[in-house]
């Protein structure tokens, strides 16, 4: 699998296909049994997750994984934990608030009190605070109303214009393929098809992966 600079790559596939496992291997929470992970030309297979974050690989994990007892702003600022990000924390925070003005209104509020959509914004914002070159997103639409999902995906497209690369896993294949530059169809842990989304949209494999009962 490959993700090019400044593009959005999407992994789609049914439940249990290994999408989340793939992402956790990329961000370093799991170790691959074989093969390797390369980021920006260097081998990061043996680096722990936090080192990959320092190197510019950020994550919005499944279920968002925010710190519910901390304020919105404290959650965001934690994203700027690594030394490289800390120097630019204020500038990045302004950028995040510019992207999601609603978070600025909620800055002092405990993040546990925010709506699902706002929490997803915090999750993306926290990832941006690490000053990443690439963000990995696991199910950004999870639990969100269609309108909010569309809004989130719009923001992701905006971020691509800034030169950010993204690797997205989505159940909501139509929405994800709509913004993707390249897509992989995963089934039972294997890539069964790949290509630009327009080519995949009406492929037999994608339809099978999603709709066949067998």
């Amino acid at each position: 699998m490959q993700c090019k600079d400044g593009t959005i790559s999407v992994i789609v596939g049914p439940n249990g296909a290994g999408k989340t496992t793939t992402l956790k291997t990329v961000n370093g929470l799991l170790k691959p049994w074989s093969g390797g992970i390369y980021f920006g030309g260097s081998d990061v297979t043996d680096l722990p997750a936090f080192r990959r974050v320092e190197g510019g690989l950020a994550s919005c994990p499944e279920g968002r994984r925010l710190f519910p007892q901390l304020s919105t702003e404290a959650n965001l600022l934690l994203g700027a934990y690594s030394r490289r990000a800390r120097h630019a924390a204020e500038t990045t925070l302004d950028f995040v608030y510019g992207l999601f003005p609603r978070l600025k209104e909620r800055a002092k509020l405990n993040v546990g009190k925010l709506s699902g959509g706002e929490q997803q914004m915090v999750s993306i914002g926290r990832a941006l605070m690490t000053r990443p070159k690439m963000i990995i997103l696991d199910e950004p639409s999870l639990g969100l109303a269609p309108k909010l999902t569309a809004e989130i995906f719009e923001k992701l497209v905006e971020l691509r214009k800034e030169g950010l690369s993204m690797l997205i896993v989505e159940q909501n294949a139509v929405q994800a393929l709509g913004v993707a530059d390249y897509a992989y169809v995963l089934q039972e842990g294997k890539v069964i098809n790949e290509g630009p989304p327009v080519e995949l949209m009406d492929s037999e494999e994608l339809r099978k992966a999603y709709f066949s009962i067998e």
């Binding site: 961000n27 929470l29 722990p48 997750a49 936090f50 974050v53 320092e54 950020a58 994550s59 994990p61 994984r65 925010l66 710190f67 519910p68 007892q69 901390l70 404290a74 600022l77 934690l78 994203g79 934990y81 690594s82 990000a85 800390r86 926290r126 605070m129 690490t130």
Partner: peptide, 22 residues
């Protein structure tokens, strides 16, 4: 900063690692 990472760790270890803290 490190203090807030400690509070974060108390709430979610994995998420703490994903913001770049060891």
């Amino acid at each position: 900063f490190i203090g807030s990472a400690i509070r974060a760790y108390a709430q979610d270890v994995t998420a703490t690692e994903l913001v770049g803290a060891n």
